[in-house]
Design a protein around this nucleic acid. Structure first.
Lengths: 196, 196
DNA sequence: ACTAAAACCGACCGATGGTCGAAAAAGGAG
DNA sequence: CTCCTTTTTCGACCATCGGTCGGTTTTAGT
């Protein structure tokens, strides 16, 4: 029971690295097993298919990020910053930039799509909780919170993915968040400083 | 010069039909050439690759829809309805439903992605023009029009694609459009009737 | 030591997108 | 019509890829 799990994790990490650097479509199963030093049969002993492995890799990726996001939930910062922090946890800006780059390469649409969907599913409840507490504090005022949150997340993904966005995009995006959540104008202005 | 173009168009139409019914990934070049009754070499005489052909097919699709949308631009209907009409021109709801269905099948992400990007690029200027005339009429009031329009389009694509959306999604979406464009509350309520 | 289950192996397979050199058609020009 | 060039067509062939399968080795429990 132990050995198997370890090997699977090892394969997952190798695949993760290769998917990021060479892209999902450009990485063949043959290359993965060569890098891992195992036979084809072994690979398919652990994964039903290449795509199934991709899903596992993405899950692994996201679990890590989710913990970071949850930490933000309990941090002692103003609510608007909390929101941005949660989103930022999932959208790597530091040395992990390569992930974001990889996801936006045209050959990785499948990976990007799966990641985005999983991500939005994971973040929405966290984000919604923060918005709720914001409403209690009187910072926000709105109904249908999860729906509003989802739209914000969809847009943040579409806007800030790869092909940078204009200053005007940011301005409108901030305006949109404030209006969507019923916040006072300027509440989210600090975002402007964070993006560039 | 004539024969070649005709043959290319013929192949494009065959491919279009097959991509829609069987999906892009599920349609092999072999199947296309069999249906067309030509040899492999001939196919690659007209198209650099299967993916290049996909782009041609999509361009063809979109050109058709764009004309419908332009007709709406000059139609004699209220501005809010004009907006919806333009978007609707591109999002088939009638007998062409199959297109929308096909685009949302998981195996067609590539096609869907390419279509969406091309579509948004095409619609944004048309949509923006209508919003501008809406501002002149005092119905809307906002700046950064193209950016706002793009966000609306991105969301309409993400929300109304395949996996139906809840009633709340629609309510929030309407609220969002009105606030983004600076319209009076209720201006866009008629959308509720159109979606189902 | 025996055995069942877990882990591993690699030859093999069908399908796919794509290549290539050569053969037909088509189209002038003399 | 003939000769030559250009366009179009052909189909055998190829490399690669994801995936299968029957069998072997390792591991672990009794």
């Amino acid at each position: 029971m132990k050995k198997g799990e370890k090997r699977k994790l090892e394969l997952l990490q190798i695949a993760y690295r290769m998917f990021i650097t060479r892209g999902y479509e450009n990485t063949s199963v043959d290359e993965i097993i060569e890098e891992a030093g195992i036979a084809k049969g072994t690979y398919y002993y652990y994964f039903e298919s290449k795509e199934a492995m991709l899903e596992d890799v993405i899950s692994m990726m996201i679990e890590k990020e989710e913990e970071k996001a949850k930490a933000f939930l309990e941090a002692d910062v103003p609510i608007p910053q909390k929101l941005v922090g949660i989103v930022a946890s999932f959208r790597p800006t530091n040395e992990e930039q390569t992930i974001g780059d990889a996801l936006n390469r045209p050959e990785n649409i499948l990976m990007h799509d799966k990641t985005t969907k999983m991500l939005i599913e994971k973040i929405t409840p966290l984000f919604s909780k923060v918005v709720e507490s914001g409403i209690e504090e009187g910072i926000f005022e709105c109904d249908n919170i999860p729906e509003r949150v989802r739209m914000i997340l969809i847009l943040s993904d579409a806007l800030f993915d790869g092909n940078g966005c204009s200053q005007n995009d940011v301005i409108v995006f901030i305006d949109l968040i404030e209006k969507l959540l019923g916040a006072k104008k300027g509440t989210m202005d600090f975002i402007k400083e964070l993006i560039r």
